[in-house]
Structures are given as structure tokens and as C-alpha cells.
Design a protein around this nucleic acid. Structure first.
Lengths: 213, 213
DNA sequence: CGGCACATACCGCCTGGTCGGTGGGAGGAC
DNA sequence: GTCCTCCCACCGACCAGGCGGTATGTGCCG
């Protein structure tokens, strides 16, 4: 379950051995995250991937199509990861903790993807944006169900909407792209641990409600 | 302190009574948030503001200059708000709670600004981006100091870095632009209350440390 | 009558996308 | 085995459009 991070050093010109679509995907991910979707010209992109425009338009119908492909890859990975944790054994609180920590870890291991995900959604067509949102929602709901279950069981406080907690948590995760640096003081795993702790702490049943209810 | 929300219905063609620079600022805020900076052409922008290109380039040196002006306005507002709360009287925990809730409220009342802030940072020149980051950091630090103080006083748990807590919190606030809708089930004030509760709950001294340390 | 606050026509550049071409490998005919 | 054929993956010069930005003109106010 910890072996999905090995495709990481394959960023530069790309070994030429990889198939063209993957090289494009990888170059696009890097450049879109670095300069933004609109600031990355198709020419730059294909140069970075070591292919030509012709090659790109052979596999992707447009620049936006390429962006969408990036989204699909991220979405697929996220979903797969969460499923694994949600369906594992053990006490709910531990599963949630593990899943939360893993989301953080996966996020910092694929920071480029995350940066693009939230920054460039509006560059997708209405239709595709809808598709992304839908998939993303399913993801949220999977997470939310874990929290709801805990609330019903009484192991989590129930005076705060599960939906809100999920949005709260993923907000902080999403924000990682704004401040996390691989060479910083905290490792991805450390941050994951803290974030999961924070989540669980904020869900601990409260003897003295401060809230607005 | 709750009266800064009145500039809200002045969005459409703009009463023509307002001075040109403000009309441009307001149109830019709306359009940049709606379609993104790159997708908004200067022509669209000036049309929406009810002025001409000539007028715009009379007050702003470039499209990016206009974006920067948007940032400056947001920054100024955020800073001013926080100062008020940080320097108020009362117990630390209460001040932090109030400040946190207010950040949320201010954010949802000015959602467009927030959306632009995090989505379009990379469209600014290196220099201006630096300026924005610097100001933003000062803002974070002001918040962090409240938490640190609480940690030293023992009213907040100290086994989690204050910096990380701040980033965690502001991440969730920033994310509001992704899901909050004015016509949704939760009001800005309600969300603010919850978020502040969540923050305080996650800072409550912990009898049984789960953490990674 | 000077100059500030705009108006408008215009420009060159750069971008995403296209389209006729091509080389080389698989495969059928003999 | 060899040749011819075909087609698929890819090439790259080219294009039209739209963009940000400019430059010159003009009316109005002090």
C-alpha cells in the first residue's frame, strides 16, 4: 500500500522510453503546476515532453483535453487510495486516522496534481467540470460516511455536520500546495500525522459544548 | 464591526456614479472570479465596467496591474480585520474564536476576492507575488502568535506546531470558495461558528496524545 | 488655453489548432 | 526471401483570430 509513490523521479525530459501519451501527461503536470494552464503554450509543452505538436494532437484533441486527462489520472488515484483505507479492518477512528494521514501523504507526493486540480478547474468545459465535480463528490461522500458512522456510534461528536467536517479537512489538505515544500522542516508523513490528529481531536465528543449548534 | 458587509449588491453594470477605478476594480473582481484572470479579456472587462480601454489604461498600467490592485484591496481588508480582533480584550481563547469566526464570515462575504487570491497568484510578476506573500505571511504570523501565546499559557495543546495549525485552519477557510454557496443550508456565520469551534477543539489540551510528535 | 480624463482606431504578436506529407514496420503475394 | 503495399504514428510549416497594449484625437473644466 506504500508502493504507489515510486513514479516520482521520472520528471525531466523523460526517458524517451515511456510511451508518448504518458510523456505528455507528465510534462503537462509539471508545467501546468509550475506556470499555470494558460501560461503554458502547447509548443513549450511538447518541447518539454520531447515530442512534436503533431504527436500531441494525435493523442489529445486539444490542450484542454490534456488537462482533463491529468484530472482523470488524479481522480483515479485518489479514489483507489481511499477505497483501500475505507474498506480495511480495525476500529473506525483508526481507519479514519489512517485514511486522513494517507490523503496528506499522497497529496504531498503528488503536489503538482493537487495544485493543478484546484487552480485550473475553471479551465475545463462545463461538461467536464461537472464530471470532475461528480467524481470528487463521490470521494467526499465516502469520507463523510465514515464520519457519520462514527457520529451514530457515539465515538465522534455529533453536534457538527459531517459534511462540514469533510470540507474543513479537505480544505486544509488542498491548501498544502500553497505552503508545503519537500525540503521544509516537516515531512509529508509528519504533516499527515498531525492533520489526522487534528481531525480526530476536533471530532472527539465534547463534554462542554462551545458551539453555535 | 459587523457593518463591512454592506458593499454587496453593487455588482451589475455599476451605478455609473462610482469613480472609474473602483468600477474597474469591482468588475475585475467579479470577472476574474467567474472566468479566471486569463479568460477575462481586457475588452470584456472594460465593457462590464461601462468604461473604455483608454480609461482603464489611464488608471492601470496593465491587466496584471489591475489584478494586483485587487490583491492589495483584499490584503488591506484582511489585515485590518485581524488587527481589530487580535488587539481586543478578553480571554485568549475567546479572542481567537472570534477572530477565526470573523475570518470565515469576511471570506464568504467576499468570496470573489478569496477565489481570485488563491487561484491567480501565479499570474502576478515574481516581484509582486513576493509582496503579496510577505503581507500574507505577516497576517499568518499575527494569528500564529495568538496560538503560541495560548500554548505557552497552557490553555492550548503544545504538541502540535502553531504554524501547522495556522496553515491547517486557513486552508479550510481558503477552500470555502470551492463549496460555499450563499443560498446553501449553512450561513456564513454558522460556518464561522463551526470552524472556530473546530479550531478550538483541536487546540484543547489533550490527556491522551495520539500524535506522531 | 492648457492639461487632465478619457475615447477609438489600430497594431503586431503569439497562440491553439490544422493539414498535407512521410517513414518504417507489418503482412500478403509470389 | 524479397518486394510491394498500406497504414498508423508522427512531423512541422502554416494560419486565422484574438489578445494586450498603444497612439493619437478630443472635449471639458479650471
Amino acid at each position: 500500500m506504500a508502493d504507489a509513490t515510486d513514479r516520482r523521479s521520472a520528471s525531466p525530459p523523460d526517458p524517451a522510453s515511456l510511451p508518448v501519451p504518458e510523456r505528455l501527461l507528465s510534462a503537462a503536470t509539471r508545467l501546468f503546476a509550475q506556470h499555470g494552464f494558460e501560461r503554458t503554450s502547447v509548443q513549450e509543452l511538447v518541447d518539454a515532453a520531447g515530442v512534436t505538436k503533431g504527436a500531441m494532437y494525435h493523442y489529445f484533441s486539444s490542450k484542454e483535453d490534456l488537462l482533463f486527462a491529468v484530472y482523470q489520472r488524479v481522480l483515479a488515484m485518489q479514489t483507489r487510495r481511499l477505497e483501500e483505507f475505507a474498506e480495511a479492518d480495525g476500529p473506525l477512528a483508526e481507519r479514519l486516522h489512517a485514511a486522513a494521514a494517507d490523503v496528506v501523504l499522497t497529496t504531498v507526493d503528488n503536489l503538482d496534481d493537487t495544485v493543478i486540480f484546484f487552480r485550473s478547474l475553471h479551465m475545463l468545459s462545463e461538461e467536464r467540470r461537472g464530471a470532475v465535480r461528480k467524481e470528487r463528490r463521490r470521494y467526499h461522500e465516502r469520507f463523510r460516511e465514515m464520519i457519520r458512522t462514527g457520529q451514530r456510534q457515539g465515538v465522534f461528536r455529533a453536534d457538527v455536520p459531517a459534511d462540514l467536517v469533510v470540507n474543513h479537512f479537505f480544505g486544509s489538505v488542498h491548501h498544502l500546495g500553497m505552503w508545503y515544500r519537500p525540503d521544509g522542516a516537516l515531512s509529508g508523513a509528519a504533516i499527515g500525522g498531525y492533520y489526522a490528529d487534528l481531525l480526530l481531536a476536533s471530532l472527539r465528543p465534547d463534554p462542554a459544548p462551545t458551539g453555535t449548534g
